[in-house]
Computed example of a mutant assay.
Amino acid sequence: ALTANLALVPVADKLNASNRVLTDEQRAVIRKHPERSVQALKEANITSPLILKIIAQHHEQADGSGYPHGLSGTEIRGEAEILALAERYVAMITKRAYRKRMNITEARKLIASLADGKFRPAIPRALLSLLTDYPPGTLVRLTNNEVAVIVRRPHRHRGPFAKAIIGPRGNRYSGTFERDCSLLDFNIVDVEQPEVMPSMDFGLLWGFH
């Protein structure tokens, strides 16, 4: 996933910041980026046939309308479809110059509608199951009015776990406090979607040192 768009790196910021219709030249760059990313990986001595095939196919679509080769159905590896849908989900929840980002609920509904021939039906269902209603990384407001980041998915009969980063009065915590969102005081009441995300210590959130 981190290497599939290598060929777009030089132009990605410009494309994402543009609110104009893409030019033919820009569309050509986009359509060629799977093959160019594969070539860049080969030049870096990454030669795994599986990885290269997944990247080469990650914009093909089950109905044959994708690119660069118009593959369809089982010609496309399932892993490539998974990568394509994960990439689409990230795009949905990311702000662009030409549109607002979707919230998690909106993005989930759109993913659920994608079992329409563009993807084999099992792929969207699998991603929705993995994401859950509040995927890790989601900013949420709790019953006690804290703002927290989801850090673990639900497990068995317990709700997702979160780490509170902002107190009920809007004060920023110097550290983080773990919250079990299945407990009444820490139930999730809404998804937070601020224009500017608060700064976060990701090492502290995810437990990396």
Rank of each mutant, 00 (worst) to 15 (best):
S129Q: 14
R101V: 03
I123C: 12
R120Y: 12
L130K: 07
N103K: 08
I93W: 00
A80Q: 01
R96G: 12
I93A: 02
R77D: 09
R99V: 05
A115P: 02
M102T: 04
Y89P: 06
A80N: 04
L127Q: 10
R96E: 11
A86S: 08
N103W: 02
R88E: 10
E106K: 07
A91I: 13
N103G: 06
E106C: 08
L110P: 05
P124V: 11
A80H: 03
N103S: 03
V90P: 00
F119H: 04
I104A: 04
I93C: 01
E106T: 10
D116E: 02
L131P: 07
I111M: 07
A86T: 09
E79T: 00
A112P: 14
R125E: 12
L114K: 08
T74K: 07
A86H: 12
K100E: 12
I82H: 09
L83N: 02
P121M: 03
K118R: 15
R101C: 12
V90E: 11
L127E: 06
Y98N: 14
S113D: 09
L83S: 05
A126H: 09
R99T: 11
L131T: 09
L114Y: 06
R101H: 12
I76R: 04
M92I: 02
I123N: 13
M92N: 06
E87R: 09
K109Y: 06
A122D: 12
V90N: 08
L128W: 02
I111L: 08
L127T: 08
V90C: 02
R96V: 05
T94C: 08
L110E: 15
L85C: 01
I104P: 00
A91W: 13
E81G: 15
A84I: 00
E75H: 04
N103E: 07
G117W: 04
Y98D: 15
K95R: 13
R101W: 03
L131A: 08
I111D: 01
I104L: 03
S129P: 00
A115Y: 02
K118A: 10
E81I: 06
A84S: 10
I104W: 00
R88P: 00
I104V: 12
L114I: 13
A86D: 06
M92C: 08
R99C: 14
A97T: 07
Y98W: 10
A91N: 10
Y98T: 08
G73S: 07
G117N: 03
D116W: 01
S113G: 12
A97N: 07
R88Q: 15
G117L: 03
A115I: 00
T105N: 13
E81D: 15
L130F: 15
S113P: 03
P124S: 15
E79G: 00
K109N: 14
L130N: 11
E87W: 06
A91T: 11
E106D: 15
N103L: 00
I93Y: 01
T105V: 14
